[in-house]
Design a protein around this nucleic acid. Structure first.
Lengths: 225, 225
DNA sequence: TTTTTTATGATAGTAATACTATTATTATGA
DNA sequence: TCATAATAATAGTATTACTATCATAAAAAA
């Protein structure tokens, strides 16, 4: 008995909606596992096919190529975080508190329910942290952007920027701050894990709490009137 | 008659120092041009070989693979920015002014002299903006980090963090801010060019000036006592 | 200057990747 | 049950990311 949520994404991201079939959901599930484990570069449709006892050809019927699959996953994550924020800030009036909840969602989204059977949110978050930016750092950004492939990210940061403006209507850079909160959140976790000299976060035991505190500190100071 | 600077990098980044031979310098020069033009994914040693009238085999004698070549270029950039900052902040006592110069170096490094014949700094900056993060978002980060392949980046951010601490010794996150200034600078330029909805920067005529103002605004507010 | 060493070029070859195409088989649902 | 759609099985191609070998040219040492 679980809450049923289906996240619907831009139709251009897939050839055939993977969430609507058993095989498609297996593709999502195991691509997340493989990409998280071996990294996006080492990930191939052949390996995924083997993992799910299917064939390359079948996967190509769902996704144009592995880049579009990554975009699909990352979009799913953006939509999911948006959904979480909407749920968790519902009925919350104080914009400062809303922002606090948003920041918590950025660093600890994977701890939240409800969870979808075919998506391991924690692993997906790791993918977003390690590989996420590759989704929009390609020579095709402009054409993909015009097809609306980054709509979910824009919606997410736009809604965050609105809360920022609620907290301080005079703040000149609500969009940049919103985007930066998301990026900095992911970067800080990544750096703490792999390049600790680039951050002040230790990330031993109390993991992401430090990142959360930092983002909160930054935000409060920046939005102070 | 130009100032001769040779940036020396971690020896593990190359098999044979490309800056020491005519052919090697051609590799640097034309890899920058090709990567900037077609993107890192589409870049191959075969194409580079054709471009410089050499062979794949010869390139492989200099660089282990294209990822290491990218790392070489990005390291070169980090070292070069460090060098610029050192030069431009020499004899500057006021830490706030130092930080201002640092921020200017981050957004407008490519406008600076002295320039090296085989490196188009402007194009290299574009590569760092568009592809830079791919240099440290791989499954090999940890092993590459242990070989010192990110030393230049760490040195750069460490020196910036010191200035930050000079401005405000009580600020708790000097490293994170230093790193974030660099990353945000590049991201903002990238977003303004490709995903303008993610930023407040317009980037029409007066280009990077807006980014510079924003980073300065953020920094001042964050470091205010 | 001749010899030796080193750098580069020319060429070939291999395993893996990123696909496309075709045909057979199995579900599903009208 | 028949038709339609989904998947599997298989094969094939161009490109990528290399490695290996040998010839030749250029630079350094003798």
């Amino acid at each position: 008995m679980s809450v049923e949520i289906k996240i619907s994404l831009n139709k251009g991201l897939y050839l055939k909606e993977p969430q609507d079939s058993k095989l498609g959901r297996k593709m999502i599930k195991h691509s997340i596992m493989l990409i998280e484990k071996f990294g996006f570069e080492a990930f191939t449709f052949k390996k995924l096919a083997k993992e799910i006892n299917s064939t390359e050809a079948s996967i190509y019927r769902y996704f144009e190529n592995k880049h579009l699959l990554l975009l699909f996953l990352v979009n799913w994550y953006w939509e999911w975080v948006s959904y979480l924020i909407t749920m968790n800030t519902m009925n919350v009036i104080d914009p400062k508190l809303k922002l606090k909840i948003i920041i918590h969602s950025f660093v600890a989204a994977h701890k939240e329910n409800p969870n979808v059977e075919y998506v391991n949110e924690s692993k997906l978050h790791n993918i977003v942290i390690s590989e996420g930016m590759k989704a929009y750092h390609t020579k095709d950004v402009d054409s993909e952007n015009s097809k609306g492939f980054f709509k979910s990210y824009k919606n997410l940061t736009t809604s965050v920027s609105k809360v920022i403006s609620e907290v301080n209507p005079d703040f000149k850079y609500p969009y940049a701050l919103a985007t930066n909160l998301f990026e900095m959140s992911n970067n800080s976790i990544y750096f703490a894990q792999h390049l600790p000299k680039l951050t002040d976060i230790s990330l031993k035991e109390n993991k992401v709490v430090e990142v959360e505190d930092m983002l909160l500190y930054f935000t409060n100071k920046l939005l102070k009137k």
